[in-house]
Design a protein around this nucleic acid. Structure first.
Length: 104
DNA sequence: GACTTGACTAGAC
DNA sequence: AGTCTAGCCAAGT
């Protein structure tokens, strides 16, 4: 359904934009909350073409890894997240569950 | 309009 | 415990 797709994207944007400082979310989590529990990849795809204003640097995969540590040549994550209070080790998030943001 | 790619996850080996 | 395969969905070509 075309409309559902738009809603999905909108939900993803909103959700990502709702991630507070010092918190992170996984693609699977976002996808699930948007109604597509298996659409983790789509979340990443949407994010890539999506607005850069959204804090995608707070979105990481389940391993706490940030897409090989950098996107398009710009490493945005470790330093940003570390700045926000997230403990980073070797470009991976330590205790990701502890920093995982769960929307109310 | 169909095939390929990609910022993922979970399960199997 | 580490590596590989399959499944999933949207954007790009």
């Amino acid at each position: 359904m075309d409309q559902s797709d738009k809603q999905f994207k909108n939900a993803v944007y909103k959700l990502v934009g709702s991630i507070p400082s010092g918190r992170v979310m996984t693609y699977g989590q976002i996808a699930a909350l948007c109604g597509r529990p298996r659409a983790a990849r789509s979340v990443g795809t949407i994010a890539h073409f999506g607005p850069e204003e959204l804090p995608w640097h707070r979105v990481v995969n389940k391993v706490g890894n940030m897409a090989s540590g950098y996107w398009g040549g710009k490493r945005v994550h470790g330093e940003h997240l570390s700045q926000e209070g997230v403990e980073i080790k070797n470009y991976r998030i330590v205790n990701i569950e502890k920093y995982l943001w769960r929307p109310l």
